[in-house]
Design a protein around this nucleic acid. Structure first.
Lengths: 106, 106
DNA sequence: ATGAAGTGCAACTCGCAGGTTGCATCCGAC
DNA sequence: GTCGGATGCAACCTGCGAGTTGCACTTCAT
C-alpha cells in the first residue's frame, strides 16, 4: 500500500543533482555525467541504478553507449503521498497548490 | 540554495509512518507513539528529532509530557523541487496537478 | 516526601549505503 | 584484426543512520 521508494531515491543529494542535470540537459551517459561530477563513474552508475529501481530514469542502449533519460511519472506518487499527509490542513494545501502552479516564480 | 533536508526526513519509512500517524490522529507524545510501533521510545524520539530538524513537527511541553504536532509547511519545498524537475514535461505536470487537487480520490 | 510515569542523555552495536579500485568485456573505427 | 573508448561486474573500505540498553532527571499524585 505504501511502497514509496521514490522518497528513498530522492533522499540523496547526488541523486537529486543527477535528476536535475538530466532534466535540464537532456539524456546523457554515465561516463558523461561522471565527468561533470566530483565522483567516479561507478558511483554515478550506482545512483543511476537506484534511480532506475525507483522508475525515475530509463536506460536505452545506443551503440556502445547507454543513455539515461528522466521519467518523472513516479514523482506523482510522492506528491500524492504529500497531499495525503497535508490533506488535514486544507488552507495550507491551498498554499501548496499556489506554489505548484507557478514553479518558475522561485 | 538547494538545502532540501525534507527529502532526507521523508526517506525513512518509520518517519513517514510517524507523520501520517500524527496527521491522522493528532498530536501525541513520544511514549504514546512508541506504544503503537514495534520500536523503542528512544528510536521514536530520534526520528522525531530528525523530523523537527526538518521543521516537519514541533514539540510543545504540556506538564511532564511533550506533545509533537505536524507542521506540513516544509513539504511545500519538496513539492516545489519536484515541480522544478518535472517542469520540463508540461503535460505530465498537468497530471500531477490533477492528482494533487483530488487527493481523496486515492 | 516518596513513588511512579515520563522525559533526556550517553554509549554501544550493527547493517547498509556511498564511494573507490581493478579488471573483464563489448562495440565501433581505422 | 586490433586498438581505444565505454560499459559491466565484483571485492573492498568507511561512515553514518537506525535501534538498543542503561541510567539520571523532572513532574504529578497521594
Amino acid at each position: 500500500m505504501s511502497g514509496e521508494p521514490v522518497f528513498a531515491a530522492l533522499s540523496d543529494a547526488t541523486r537529486r543533482t543527477l535528476l536535475t542535470r538530466l532534466a535540464d540537459g537532456g539524456p546523457a551517459t554515465a561516463t558523461q555525467l561522471a565527468a561533470e561530477l566530483p565522483i567516479t563513474r561507478q558511483a554515478v552508475l550506482k545512483h543511476l541504478e537506484a534511480l532506475r529501481d525507483a522508475r525515475l530514469v530509463t536506460s536505452a542502449r545506443a551503440g556502445r553507449e547507454v543513455r539515461y533519460t528522466v521519467t518523472p511519472e513516479p514523482l506523482a506518487d510522492a506528491v500524492g503521498w504529500i497531499a495525503d499527509v497535508g490533506g488535514q490542513w486544507d488552507s495550507r494545501l491551498a498554499a501548496l497548490q499556489a506554489q505548484f502552479s507557478s514553479p518558475r516564480a522561485k
